Each structure stands twice: as C-alpha cells, then as structure tokens.
Computed example of a mutant assay.
Amino acid sequence: MHPSRRILIASAFCTALAAAAPFAQAADAPITIMVGGINKIIYLPAMLTEKLGYFKDAGLDVSLQSAPAGVNAENQLIAGAVQGVVGFYDHAIDLQSKGKEIEAIAVLCKVPGEVEMVSTKAAPTFKSMADAKGKTLGVTGLGSSTDFLTRYLAGRKGVASADISLLPVGAGNTFIAAIQQDRIQAGMTTEPTVSQLLKTGDAQVLVDLRTESTTQEALGGLYPAASLYVQNSWAESHKDEASKLAKAFARTMVYIHTHTAEEIADLVPRDFYGNDKALYVTALKASLPMFTTDGHMPAGGPETVLKVLATYKPQVKSANINLSKTYTNAYLDAK
C-alpha cells in the first residue's frame, strides 16, 4: 500500500473513533471537578481533599473550578466540559427525569446545610414560611437546589409557588446585599454567609437545615445534599478513577470528624474568611455535624429528596425515577 494511502486510512480510522466517543478520556488524564461555590462550607470537602493531598495520594491529577450555583456546574458536566461536580444530589434525580444519567459516588452532607434567613426589617411580620405569601425570596439560581427547597418549605406551610417571587441573588456578598437593600425579604443561603448576617444583625434564622433534627422536622426526613457526582457512563468506563475519587473524599470526611474547626480553618485559603477568621471558625462549628462520616448515602435520604422534587416538578414522579441509578456506594466499597 502506498504510504500516503496508509496515512489517509489511519487518519480516517482515528476520526471515526473520536466521533464515536466524543467525551472519551484516557485513564491517566487530568480530572476537572466543578464546585457549585467553592468557598461555601457545604462544599468545603472539595478544597480540603486538595489541600490535604488526598487526590495526589490516590495518584489522581485533579483540578477544581468554581461555579456560582450547582445548576451551572451540572450544565458543564452534561456538556462534557468537566468530569465531576461537587453539588447537590437532587440534581441526579432531576436530570434523570430529563433523560440524563448522573450519580453521586460520595455523599458529603446528610442534610442541606442551608438556612432560610429573614431580614431583620421583615422579621416582625415574617415569623415562619406561612408568612411568605407576597414576599420576594432569594435563591442562588432559578432551577437550583435552593429553588426546589424554598418552594417546598413554603408549600408545607400552605403557601403556593404562585404566591411567592423567587429572585436569583447568588451567595455570599451578593446575597447579603440583596438582604440589606430589601430586594429580598428572606432567602436561602449557607455558611459562612449565615454567621455573617447574624453578626451584623441584618437577618435572623427562619428555617435551619443544618442539623438532622431540624431538617427532619422541616422536610420530613434526611435530605442528602452536597455530593460528588459524575455521569454514570464516565464512572462505568473509569471505574478505577471513580473509586479513587470517592475514597479520597471519604478520607476527608474522616478528617473532618477527627479534627477541630480551628484545625480545619487553618487549611483553607485566606479569601474564604477574609479578615474574620474567628467568624469562619464559628460558622464551621455550626456546620460540622451535617457532614457524613464516610461518604456513604444515608438510608432513606434519596426517598426524601424524590418526595421534595416530585411536589413541584411534574416530570419527577416515583414511577419515572430509578433511584438506584442516581447514587452508588460501590466505588467507596471497592477493594
């Protein structure tokens, strides 16, 4: 065969392979994980795993990126731009209803870690979610987990979605500004924003989803939230990497439960807490109980999440959802 013809045939063969597997990835290729707000304490295990060197210990080349909300990170995963996301588990159920399969391979929080904060100005007439009618409530983004949860909390108190306005205000400083400017009368956010608002007196706790007991009271059960999730197809074709990732996060969960808030705070970048490290430590102490001890999915958790989503998303119904495809402990337990 003429050399140029061999080259042409080889080139055509490689092109066909690329077209058949557009998101194929070499086993030792770098792994990009997008975090739905890297400085949020609910997603702290991502940065900790990097700082503790657990990715490198596992032989993984991992880079972390940050997105303003979990829904943005989810879109990047589906597009194949990243291999994993640290975001809320409920996206796995929501996406399955749309024909997309992603699964949580390590669960970081057994409860949302979110808090519905009411502005001090609105507090005298806004004492529970039953008073939310006609109010504007802040969420990180429309279609985000805070969107689902806010509507569910209001609904359980008899307030229909049509009777509230949801405004995407992000997190951190943008959320605080929205409270201070009265653009929202209440909103859902996480630590350390919660502790910052309490310190300045700009807002008060309305519904606390940072503990097991308050979450069970508000939602009717545990609500596994912050998780490491990937596309099911990626995990199946990269079982070794998926297992190493899951186990690296599990090591971090053990570290969190065997070290003090002060020791953990010493590991995070300074821009996570600015000039008030003491406030960050206070926020950490309030948050540590929400983390799982080993990365496993808590029993009964997926069912609670499905119940919440099914309330306001017509396409999310028990008959249409196979929960076993939305999470797995297999990569944590692999030998």
Rank of each mutant, 00 (worst) to 15 (best):
I179R: 12
K277Y: 08
M290N: 05
T282M: 01
P68S: 07
A178T: 07
Q83Y: 00
T49Q: 14
S213A: 14
Y327E: 09
D57A: 13
F148D: 14
L64M: 01
E116C: 09
L166S: 06
E191N: 14
A160Q: 15
A106T: 13
S161K: 09
A225Y: 06
E116V: 10
K335R: 00
C109T: 15
A177M: 06
D182A: 13
T292V: 09
F88V: 12
W234F: 08
T32K: 06
S11E: 08
K313A: 11
Q181Y: 09
V82F: 07
Y229E: 04
A225P: 03
W234V: 00
V107F: 13
K317D: 06
H2S: 03
V268R: 11
K157R: 11
L284Q: 07
V230R: 03
S4F: 05
E241W: 01
A283S: 13
K244T: 02
Y152H: 15
R210H: 01
V316L: 02
G84S: 13
L309S: 04
Y54Q: 07
T326G: 02
I31F: 02
T200S: 15
A248D: 10
G155A: 05
T326H: 04
S97Y: 05
F23V: 09
T174P: 05
L228S: 12
S11V: 10
S4K: 00
L198M: 01
R210C: 08
D94F: 14
N173T: 13
T304G: 10
L137R: 10
V107R: 13
N75Q: 14
K307P: 12
K247H: 01
A20M: 05
V107M: 15
R151P: 09
A21E: 05
R156K: 15
D28N: 10
G187M: 02
E101K: 15
V305P: 05
A171V: 11
A12P: 00
K133I: 00
K40R: 15
S128N: 13
Q83H: 02
P30V: 02
G37E: 02
I321Q: 02
M129K: 14
S195L: 06
K239N: 00
D163W: 08
K133R: 10
V107D: 12
A310M: 04
V281C: 07
L60P: 03
S145E: 11
Y255R: 14
T258P: 12
L17N: 06
L17E: 00
L167C: 07
E303Q: 15
T258R: 06
Y331G: 00
A106G: 05
E236G: 12
G37H: 07
D202N: 08
L167N: 13
L95G: 03
F23N: 13
L323H: 08
P112M: 09
T32R: 03
V82P: 11
T293F: 05
Y89I: 08
A261K: 06
A10T: 05
G170Y: 01
Q83S: 05
A20R: 09
E212T: 15
V254T: 11
D90H: 09
P192S: 07
D240N: 04
A81I: 11
K307G: 08
P192Q: 00
G53R: 08
F291T: 12
V85C: 09
V194M: 01
K133S: 12
L137E: 08
P45E: 07
G113P: 06
E191S: 14
A171H: 11
T174W: 03
V62W: 06
Y331M: 00
D266H: 03
